[in-house]
């Protein structure tokens, strides 16, 4: 069932089941657990997501290396007195995405969605929609199951690892999951959900993984904010009925291919891109020498 997004849509149309219930039912079969327990397991993750999305807003969180931190707090308090160009919903999601990733870089507790480096995008998007549209926790839990169904298809056709596929595979997948899950949450059809996945991923193809000093901080923290923005773009487009002429499954395949041919210096090795800039190198040397 998780071989393609198209299959998910077809199955959902045929059985008249929501994407969330299809994912939950599959999980019941593979884990042998009851639905209540599976939902509870997800609820627990949601709680940790909420904590990590809040923690760095309340007070600045610095990373272990010291090269990132404090941005979530800065944006959150700027929003108190300023009107964000991105609007009140998206801007709050941006701040929450920064928060989760700053908590991650500061050795705090997060939920990998699908990875630690991209952990801010999905929680920030869903928690903010919960706030603006007053969804219940149960509805958000459903959306998280939709996100995991999408993630499973991506893992089956490509991968979600920066080391294997570049940042398009990490933050790209996270944003695609967030967009697809949000469309379902906001009442879009399964087909629209998958279109949101395709549109998001299309817009993030080719993004390289070039972390300074090999640490999940620069550019990762800000890329989580960018991932949220990409998800928001796709949510509105998909809900308006706009479709990707390249089918979403083929977009995932394109992502896999691009990841394969991407230079290995641009796949989490910390040897290319931003990591190889004069400043990137200097920061890396400082971290390695001063503390090594």
């Amino acid at each position: 069932m998780f071989a393609s997004l198209q299959e998910l849509v077809k199955e959902s149309e045929k059985t008249d089941k929501s994407l969330a219930s299809m994912v939950i039912e599959t999980e019941m079969v593979t884990s042998g657990k009851a639905e209540v327990d599976i939902r509870l397991q997800m609820q627990k993750r949601l709680e940790i997501m909420k904590e990590s999305a809040q923690k760095a807003l309340d007070k600045p969180v610095r990373s272990i290396s010291g090269i990132s931190g404090g941005s979530a707090h800065k944006l959150w308090h700027w929003l108190d007195k300023n009107e964000a160009i991105t609007g009140s919903v998206m801007s709050r999601a941006l701040a929450r995405a920064l928060s989760v990733n700053e908590v991650n870089a500061g050795m705090g507790c997060i939920v990998a969605t699908p990875t630690a480096g991209s952990a801010g995008i999905l929680p920030a998007t869903l928690i903010t929609l919960q706030e603006s549209h007053h969804f219940s926790d149960d509805e958000i839990v459903d959306a998280l199951f939709v996100a995991s169904g999408i993630g499973m298809v991506i893992v089956n056709r490509a991968n979600v690892s920066g080391a294997m596929g570049g940042c398009q595979a990490e933050t790209g997948s996270a944003a695609a999951m967030a967009a697809g899950a949000s469309v379902a949450l906001l009442g879009g059809s399964p087909r629209q959900s998958m279109q949101a996945v395709g549109i998001t991923l299309k817009n993030m193809l080719g993004l390289v993984c070039d972390p300074v000093a090999g640490l999940v901080e620069v550019p990762c923290v800000k890329r989580n904010a960018a991932g949220v923005a990409q998800a928001f773009v796709a949510i509105d487009l998909a809900l308006a009925g706009i479709e990707s002429i390249i089918p979403p499954d083929e977009v995932i395949d394109a992502m896999a291919h691009i990841g394969k041919v991407m230079d290995k210096n641009l796949k989490e090795t910390g040897l290319g891109g931003l990591a190889a800039t004069p400043t990137g190198k200097k920061l890396a040397e400082n971290i390695w020498n001063e503390r090594g």
């Binding site: 999980e27 050795m107 705090g108 999905l122 995991s148 999940v216 901080e217």
Partner: peptide, 12 residues
Amino acid sequence: AFDIIGPIMIGP
């Protein structure tokens, strides 16, 4: 589903 939404972990 929890391989994708998870694990719960300490960063980074």
